[in-house]
Design a protein around this nucleic acid. Structure first.
Length: 119
DNA sequence: CAAATGACAAAAT
DNA sequence: AATTTTGCCATTT
């Protein structure tokens, strides 16, 4: 399922970097960013999936439903060296991870393949 | 099976 | 400039 694809990508985010929902959607060629977050929320394997490295488009942390609270998320990010502009806003410009072309292509292909096979 | 839901984002007011 | 509406689709019920 697509959730797994999203998990794969998120799992590749290097330490100290973040991705926005919109970026993930763009990489996957997905037109709906909501289900990106939906995927993360559906999954509670926060120990396996670094969902704290996923932020909103302006670098702010996602809504309060983040695995234990935004404060925890901030802690985790700060501990990884993510630059913060203010209390709950990361410097998205500097912290945004530039996904390697080969990886992004691979992810996109996975999604396309899945989409094609589905129904 | 039809309908509701959802950690967002960009466009339109 | 700030707030509201629209888009959009996999998953779940």
């Amino acid at each position: 399922m697509v959730f797994q694809i999203i998990y794969d990508l998120v799992s590749e985010i290097p330490n100290g970097k973040v991705l926005s929902y919109g970026t993930i959607a763009k990489i996957m060629g997905m037109k709906d960013v909501r289900k990106v977050g939906f995927a993360l929320h559906a999954n509670r394997n926060t120990n396996k999936i670094p969902c704290h490295r996923v932020v909103t488009s302006d670098g702010r942390l996602a809504s309060g439903y983040a695995f234990g609270g935004p404060n925890v998320q901030k802690e985790l990010l700060a501990a990884e060296g993510v630059p913060f502009i203010s209390d709950k806003q990361v410097d998205i410009e500097k912290a945004l991870w530039e996904v390697p072309d080969d990886l992004s292509e691979r992810i996109a292909q996975k999604f396309q393949k899945y989409k094609k096979g589905r129904k």
